[in-house]
């Protein structure tokens, strides 16, 4: 059973998320630099490369914000700032071990609602600057949302169905014996896909793709850019971390304490996602919408049906 954490956890949570995001981004940066310039010659060189994201944050922070003509500055700023806020709010129901900042009775719905704020965030950031490429980025995210959101919601509903509760703590408890990932693999797979899609990252990075010069982020600079792109990493970390209580048994595991299991499992999921990113090209919107509606949604429905039948006969 998940307990509510003490008040100070509210302050620890953002710090923890930031650290995990920086470590993940650092890992990603080492692999990226390795692909471009050959493998790092020494540990020192690898460490320098791993510090890239941190340096990048500092570099962006000293840049002055800029404006484009007839831009809607307020909208763009709100969009940029909303992304990390959405990630943080979604993380409130994330249990570390068996404790979350707030184990809401409808935690899964809360998570879904907060994560959907990203739709607004990316669209606003894309629309605000009044620039074609960033607008295309914004459009792309809406199309992507149409593709991933439905299978995604069905997938997390399936996990809730298996536990017969919307409370994240109870979903974890229901996996004391068998992880959900093992008996609802399709839902787990779909969840991982949509985790990347909602963070518009990896194979789903079209909304901020390099082919549109950064898409929704194309015109953001300075602190706005840090918030937006940092928020994207946070969202990825939170989405990946949420797969642990939903499908991977949360803090359950032998020998080690629950919190360590959570961290290890989250790390494993993130490492997997970082690896996947290297193996596949970006999935363009029109193809992903097709996949989402023709394959993933029916698959998710069948998965939910199977789980429902099992639960009813239990």
């Amino acid at each position: 059973m998940a307990d509510s954490a003490p008040l100070w956890a509210v302050f620890v949570l953002p710090v923890l998320l930031l650290v995990v995001a920086l470590v993940t981004a650092g890992f990603d940066a080492v692999l990226t630099a390795g692909a471009r310039g050959g493998r790092a010659g020494s540990v020192r060189e690898a460490a320098v490369r791993a510090a890239d994201p941190a340096r990048e944050v500092l570099r962006q922070l000293v840049q002055q914000p800029r404006r484009t003509r007839a831009s809607d500055v307020a909208l763009a700023r709100i969009g940029a700032a909303l992304l990390p806020v959405a990630a943080m709010l979604a993380a409130v129901v994330l249990p570390l071990g068996f404790r979350s900042v707030s184990d809401l009775p409808e935690g899964i719905v809360w998570f879904n609602a907060m994560e959907a704020l990203a739709w607004a965030a990316v669209w606003l950031a894309g629309w605000g600057p009044n620039s074609t490429l960033s607008l295309i980025g914004g459009y792309r995210f809406l199309a992507q949302g149409l593709a991933y959101e439905l299978p995604h919601m069905l997938a997390i509903t399936t996990a809730a169905l298996g536990a017969e509760s919307l409370r994240v703590g109870q979903v974890v408890d229901a996996q004391d014996g068998l992880w959900f990932a093992l008996w609802m693999p399709a839902a787990f797979g779909i969840y991982l896909l949509s985790a990347m899609a909602m963070a518009f990252w990896g194979p789903f990075d079209q909304p901020a793709g390099r082919d549109v010069a950064g898409g929704a982020a194309a015109e953001l600079s300075g602190a706005d850019r840090v918030l937006f792109l940092g928020g994207r990493w946070l969202l990825l970390v939170v989405a990946a971390a949420f797969s642990v209580p939903l499908f991977l048994g949360g803090g359950y595991g032998p020998w080690l304490p629950g919190w360590l299991w959570t961290v290890l499992k989250t790390g494993a999921v993130l490492a997997f996602l970082v690896w996947v990113r290297r193996r596949v090209p970006t999935v363009r919107m029109e193809r992903y919408v097709e996949l989402g509606w023709v394959v993933l949604t029916p698959l998710a429905i069948v998965q939910a049906l199977v789980v429902a039948v099992v639960v009813l006969n239990r």
Partner: peptide, 15 residues
């Protein structure tokens, strides 16, 4: 590959 969004491959080919 950079344009198709396969940045890893793009980087390797450029290497």
């Amino acid at each position: 590959f950079a344009v198709t969004g396969w940045t890893d491959m793009a980087a390797r080919f450029r290497h």
